[in-house]
Amino acid sequence: MTQGQELIIENLAAGYGKVQVLWDVSVRVGAGEFVAMIGANGAGKTTTLRSVSGVVRPSAGRITLGGRDISRAQPSEIVKLGLGHVPEGRELFPLMTVLENLELGAAMRPEAAAAQKHTLEHVYSLFPRLAERAGQLAGTLSGGEQQMVAVGRALMGRPSVLVVDEPSLGLSPLMTQTVFEALRAVNAEGVSVLLVEQNVGLSLRLAHRAYVLENGQVVKEGTGAALLQDPSVREAYLAL
């Protein structure tokens, strides 16, 4: 995988039409860092990731990737600069095979296309089941297998920064562990990771640092270990 770049979100405001979702959100993911973003449904986590990948256009603030301003860039341009996005809900092409879905992930970056065979072998090493299912239609896979394809497709682009939205949604504990182990391995190789996840305990145990979003604003930040022990976090998100 490509070595990680720094992702910086500064004073971000964004929403949908006249409905504002984010107010003054600032988040930093250092090169090679694993950062988690937690919060209740509707807190603005997905909108933050969509703003980073260019799907949502910010109304204010600045986003930089490796020092380059991507605040107004098109999604295709942002992918070429090294961002990989695993969206909530996976968004696979159900009538295409596993292999075809994975190959699409390498299509936008020349360097990824050139290294496609090597990267595919790496994805299969992270998710051996995908090698077994390579010729199977993606729409016929289990939810966990589809999530593996979604992560694998993003990795096929050889991203320097990977943003991941709710990867455990609808997955069994075993499948969740498999996906999170892959994310841990990718980060250990140097890729920067920004994770949005409903499994707060698992996220904070993996993350170097984390942010808490409430009503479209960052209300708390710290190391994953510190937030895991924070009384307000434990009460609100861990039922402890």
Rank of each mutant, 00 (worst) to 15 (best):
residue 60 A to W: 11
residue 67 G to C: 11
residue 87 P to D: 04
residue 144 G to D: 07
residue 70 I to C: 02
residue 82 G to S: 03
residue 115 A to C: 02
residue 142 S to W: 05
residue 56 V to H: 12
residue 103 E to M: 14
residue 137 L to G: 00
residue 57 R to N: 14
residue 116 Q to R: 15
residue 145 E to M: 02
residue 145 E to K: 05
residue 97 T to H: 12
residue 71 S to T: 15
residue 67 G to V: 13
residue 103 E to W: 09
residue 116 Q to N: 01
residue 123 V to F: 00
residue 100 E to C: 13
residue 125 S to D: 14
residue 147 Q to S: 03
residue 136 Q to T: 06
residue 108 M to C: 06
residue 122 H to I: 10
residue 126 L to G: 00
residue 80 K to N: 05
residue 87 P to G: 07
residue 81 L to S: 14
residue 67 G to L: 12
residue 146 Q to D: 08
residue 96 M to K: 04
residue 139 G to A: 06
residue 112 A to P: 03
residue 146 Q to L: 09
residue 130 L to S: 01
residue 93 F to D: 05
residue 82 G to V: 06
residue 92 L to K: 08
residue 131 A to K: 13
residue 63 I to M: 04
residue 60 A to S: 15
residue 105 G to A: 07
residue 122 H to M: 12
residue 84 G to K: 09
residue 138 A to D: 03
residue 90 R to I: 03
residue 126 L to D: 02
residue 142 S to R: 06
residue 128 P to F: 07
residue 132 E to P: 09
residue 119 T to D: 14
residue 126 L to M: 04
residue 132 E to N: 11
residue 82 G to P: 10
residue 139 G to M: 02
residue 117 K to E: 10
residue 105 G to E: 05
residue 127 F to I: 10
residue 116 Q to S: 14
residue 150 A to Y: 01
residue 106 A to K: 10
residue 106 A to V: 12
residue 145 E to I: 02
residue 89 G to S: 10
residue 143 G to P: 08
residue 118 H to S: 11
residue 77 E to W: 15
residue 122 H to N: 13
residue 86 V to H: 06
residue 104 L to F: 11
residue 88 E to F: 05
residue 56 V to Q: 10
residue 85 H to M: 11
residue 149 V to H: 04
residue 62 R to Q: 13
residue 55 V to T: 15
residue 104 L to H: 05
residue 93 F to V: 09
residue 116 Q to K: 13
residue 106 A to Y: 09
residue 136 Q to K: 07
residue 143 G to T: 01
residue 108 M to W: 07
residue 124 Y to E: 09
residue 97 T to Q: 14
residue 88 E to C: 09
residue 65 L to P: 08
residue 124 Y to F: 13
residue 96 M to W: 04
residue 128 P to E: 12
residue 67 G to T: 03
residue 147 Q to P: 02
residue 133 R to P: 01
residue 115 A to Y: 00
residue 110 P to Y: 02
residue 69 D to F: 12
residue 148 M to K: 02
residue 69 D to L: 09
residue 103 E to Q: 15
residue 55 V to L: 15
residue 124 Y to V: 07
residue 71 S to G: 08
residue 135 G to I: 07
residue 67 G to Y: 08
residue 93 F to K: 11
residue 141 L to W: 03
residue 97 T to C: 12
residue 68 R to H: 15
residue 73 A to Y: 04
residue 69 D to P: 12
residue 64 T to R: 14
residue 128 P to G: 14
residue 132 E to L: 08
